[in-house]
Amino acid sequence: MENALKPASQRVQTFLSERGKALKVKQMPASTRTASEAAEAIGCTVGQIAKSLIFEDKASGNPVLIVASGTNMVSMDKVKVNAGLDLKKSNADFVREQVGFAIGGVPPIAHKQNVITLLDADLKQFEVIWAAAGTPNSVFELTPQDLDDLTQGRWVEISQ
């Protein structure tokens, strides 16, 4: 028996469906809040987790999404050099206000507003990746090409 999706996850599923993607949001019995928890719950490698991190552009104050491989730490210096953005970390209130999702469940899609999106080039090495789907225990499977199509992000080297 499949449980009904929570509203935040349903928003992600609707976004996927409206874009013609046959990708399905799955609610997991265990937490997928962190990359390691998600990998354990799914049964994949931590590198296959596409974690969505929201930063704030220092110049404009706008949100910037970085979708990073679960094993990678974001290098602010590399982002500045490779993408021309000077970023600062954002707090939970900023994330929820700007994209409409809470930290630990931020998906790479279906945000309240358009966001500048940078994609970790390391994700391209995997045939299949997994991303958060709006809650701390919902995910969806996709390919790096799907991620590119859905986010219109820019692939850059961002890891330390």
Rank of each mutant, 00 (worst) to 15 (best):
E56K: 15
K51F: 01
V64S: 10
G105M: 04
S52P: 10
R96Y: 07
D120R: 08
G100A: 06
R96W: 05
N114L: 02
K78F: 02
F55G: 09
V81I: 15
N114F: 14
A102E: 06
F94V: 01
N82S: 08
I54V: 15
K89I: 05
P108G: 11
I103G: 03
I116S: 14
A132H: 15
F94R: 13
V74Y: 02
L123T: 07
G84C: 06
H111S: 01
L53D: 01
E127L: 04
E141I: 04
N72P: 12
K112R: 11
P108K: 04
F94G: 02
D57M: 04
V139M: 06
G47N: 06
L65H: 02
K112P: 05
G105N: 06
K124H: 02
S69H: 00
K78H: 03
S138C: 12
G84M: 03
N82M: 08
G105H: 12
A92Y: 13
A133T: 13
N137E: 10
I109S: 09
W130F: 13
F55D: 04
V74E: 06
H111I: 05
Q48C: 05
S60P: 12
A92G: 06
N72H: 14
A50G: 13
I54M: 11
V95S: 03
K78I: 01
A121G: 09
G70A: 10
A92D: 08
Q125N: 10
V64H: 08
S52Q: 10
Q98R: 12
A132R: 15
Q125I: 08
M73Y: 14
V74W: 11
L87T: 00
N91I: 08
